[in-house]
Design a binder for these strands. Structure first.
Lengths: 189, 189
DNA sequence: CCGGTTTTGTTGGTTTTTCAACAGATGACT
DNA sequence: AGTCATCTGTTGAAAAACCAACAAAACCGG
């Protein structure tokens, strides 16, 4: 993609996110966004139909980033890749918490929840494989579903309640819960 | 000025400054600068003849910024405007110390020194006016020259010796020296 | 509800940037 | 000395962003 487009789009989206943490979405004007992004107003219209379209694309891009943070393993030498990508995801959530909260409240909450659960599902499945668990298919599926639901629920709780703790703390606690469960399942297999 | 030009120029200059703190100027290529600035290589050539021209313009712009930081009073309610603009200037110097050191060593050192002394001269004169000192013209001029030379000398010493202390500290000490001198002069007037 | 101000979305002409391609220079390595 | 890779500076055409201007819509205070 042309670097001009890329740079302007991120500038515009960041401007919107920033403004959304400051005031109500409906009160935000295209003019403000253009000004904040240091971009001509026309440029915004060349990329997005209107405020709402911009919002959609913005949310989409953010979710994509979140998904990637969850699935991509940055550092192979990491002591615990799954845990650190979980932490990275929660830190991203934490970073733009206000933005996500205002957006996820209305729309996309379900799709987001599903995507998140999907990712966590995969991570947990990967953990199962790594540990060479000799479980029958059914027990494994149930356990995976059990743990991923639990995890998503905790994340949702952490996220909707205003900052009960930091991303690092919640990751630690959540991870130890998941870990002890894995240990249990392993010992029973 | 067209916002595209402004944005690209600052990106290019910042890229150069950043690179100069990392490696020798001669080892820096236009390609690297373009990459770091996230700008097409051709764009650099559309603004600057070559690396050296870019360097010149860059230094010029930085000095301008420094001069402005020294003369502009940001906050009228500041308890001590002159002192805080001195601090701001030294902080700017501190921020890009590596860049300035490499540049000022060779060229522009004298012009920079003169400009800096000019500014400090003005600030000190302003202090004299503020304090309503009833001195004859000659005594005043001498005192101003005395104090500004002293100040510039201290700043130069601070800057060329590698970080003997922070901008904040040197500002405090330098200011108290200047202040006691002012007091003295005032009491004698 | 009216008049003034702001915002919106669109247009057209201009400027800037981008990209890819080029030939020549430079420099490192054998 | 020769080869290879990289860097330089330049070109031209295409894409994008700029700006100013516009009419219509939305908003707001009196």
């Amino acid at each position: 993609m042309d670097r001009r487009i890329k740079k302007n789009q991120t500038a515009i989206m960041n401007a919107l996110i920033q403004l959304m943490t400051e005031k109500d979405f409906e009160k935000i004007t295209i003019n403000e966004i253009a000004e904040r992004a240091d971009v001509n107003r026309g440029t915004i219209y060349s990329h997005y139909a209107d405020k709402y379209d911009l919002m959609d694309k913005c949310l989409e891009a953010q979710l994509q980033q979140l998904i990637e943070s969850c699935s991509v393993v940055v550092d192979e030498t990491e002591s615990n890749p799954s845990k650190s990508s979980l932490l990275r995801t929660l830190e991203l959530l934490e970073e733009n918490a206000l933005f996500y909260k205002t957006l996820l409240r209305n729309k996309a909450l379900l799709s987001f929840r599903n995507q998140l659960q999907d990712m966590i599902n995969k991570q947990i499945k990967a953990q199962f494989l790594e540990n060479n668990l000799t479980l029958d298919e059914l027990s494994k599926d149930i356990s995976v579903q059990f743990l991923s639901s639990a995890a998503v629920g905790v994340i949702e709780w952490w996220f909707t309640h205003s900052n009960p703790c930091t991303a690092k703390e919640i990751t630690e606690k959540l991870w130890s819960l998941l870990d002890t469960n894995l240990q249990m399942i392993r010992s029973q297999a």
